[in-house]
Nucleic acid binder design. Sequence first.
DNA 1: ACCAAAATACCCCTTTATGAGTACCTCTTT
DNA 2: AAAGAGGTACTCATAAAGGGGTATTTTGGT
Lengths: 216, 216
Amino acid sequence: MSDTTSASILLIDDHPLLRKGVKQLIELDDELIVIAEASNAIEGIKAAKETEPDLILLDLNMPNINGIETLKMLRDEEVASRVIVFTVSDNEEDVVAALKAGADGYLLKDMEPEELLESLRQAALGKVVISDKLTTLLAQALQSGRSSNKSDISSLTPREKQIIKLIAGGLPNKLIARKLNITEGTVKVHVKHLLKKLRLRSRVEVAVWAVQEGLG
Amino acid sequence: MSDTTSASILLIDDHPLLRKGVKQLIELDDELIVIAEASNAIEGIKAAKETEPDLILLDLNMPNINGIETLKMLRDEEVASRVIVFTVSDNEEDVVAALKAGADGYLLKDMEPEELLESLRQAALGKVVISDKLTTLLAQALQSGRSSNKSDISSLTPREKQIIKLIAGGLPNKLIARKLNITEGTVKVHVKHLLKKLRLRSRVEVAVWAVQEGLG
DNA sequence: ACCAAAATACCCCTTTATGAGTACCTCTTT
DNA sequence: AAAGAGGTACTCATAAAGGGGTATTTTGGT
């Protein structure tokens, strides 16, 4: 079984030796493969756009453009890859900033190799992975501060909220269009916009989110 | 606005005069169009498979094969159209039998024309439409008897339940495949089966149902 | 009158999802 | 041994969804 292709990974880190080590580690795992490397933000973004990896392992401490900025630039460039921040910093501000900027994971470089591989496998499956060491820290940050990383319904237009409820009702775009008396193409535009605003990846995620949020 | 195509309707009724009247009524409405007619079950099923209408208006009292049987045959033939039973019978058994057999609506022939059109428009949008007269009757039937019309999780295999939870987690088939270490094709097979068993029309409906059911 | 946001509609294209069919393998039950 | 259920893996096909872009119209506020 399993001829599913393995998850492709792009490494962005300014330390060649560390890249080499991580690459060797990763390639011990059949489910993971390093398809590109970069030593700075510019190269990294270029490589990300060219190779469209499943995952991007991103260092925070890089010269010129740091990891958070790189992350934002990747998002601006509409790179669809999941971005896992991989750094030595267990500083709360860094963690929170990375997650607020849309990181899909935050792993520390002092992890056990086997744990790192497991985390990457989980990340490739869509899970947000955070080093165990950071969970307590994160919980506190969320308690004290505003959550704010949650998808925010307030940024949505009335039409978008309306369409979310219909998606949560299970309706396909065609029926939403009929119901609202607009074309399917227009519905798609609204869906596209709301997916981006909510940082969600599909209408299924929208539906689940809406139901859990008590809409619909 | 609204160049969305109108909802197509197939009429199945053994009374030519009634078909004629209904057709004339329906064609007063821009959003609805009669694309085929049939005077018995066999013709009706044939027409349904050929024209794949959005809605099928189905009479219950027909010679040889009655409406309920016709409905079951339509389901067996994998006709995707929404089937609205349209009859004079306000008998509780008929209503319950029709809905248990998978009818998407149950309308009485003595409805006001304008109400009928409105009901058909709603049905085309995916709503289950029931004549107002029947709601009380239905409520009683549901209280006394078993609900049973609800999608039943007990008919699912363990693998299917597992996949439902993953769908409710927002995962696309590809990630589900990786997580379960099977091919995407196999995931699709499971999804296909579970959609049929649960009488749902898309993975979005599955996700919503699962979340509301407390799964995932 | 002007501006900006929202809504509409369309183009292009790629990726996902769904539906139907066949096939093979492994268990369990009869 | 035969039959059935469940799981896996294909094929081929169509439908739906998603992401990029441009452009027009509507609407509310200054």
